[in-house]
Amino acid sequence: MLDSDNIAFIQAGVSISLAACGPDRLASMSRGMGCKVLDGGRRVGVFVKRSQSAELLENIRRSGKVANVFSLPSSNRTVQLKGVDAQVQPFDPADFSIVEAHVADFVTEVLPLGLPEEVVRTLFACAAEDLATVVYSPCAAFSQTPGPKAGEPLGAAR
């Protein structure tokens, strides 16, 4: 599902967002604090703050269906992954270095765009105890880079 280029892309200084729907079709979403790729790209783990994601995590436990977007602010390159088998797992403290590296990469990415560093770091401030890992197998991947090919399956759009 994910080639090496996209595996590298989703782990770069991208903005990450994760969403799942409730029984009334109302979606909830949270900002991802980073992600890891498992099984050579067959599964993805996204870190979210539990304190910000009660509704999202409840929706995931209920349906397992997730939408996950990764976007690089400087280029607008955007990828959306979908999954139907998402599970909420405890956060492995060993992954905290991934979160720290992601925040550092994202700060490096957005500071030239004029965002105040203090605001960005506050947005991504988190403690390992507050994190959860949502793991799913991407079953569909789309390019969402703005343009005529937005929405096409990843292979077709590139």
Binding site: A19, V66, A67, V69, Q144
Partner: peptide, 18 residues
């Protein structure tokens, strides 16, 4: 800081966009 929009199709599959 771009906003995110989340919607849901009839089958309960979410969708996200900037």
């Amino acid at each position: 800081i771009p906003g995110h929009i989340a919607t849901c199709d009839a089958e309960g599959m979410p969708n996200l966009a900037y």
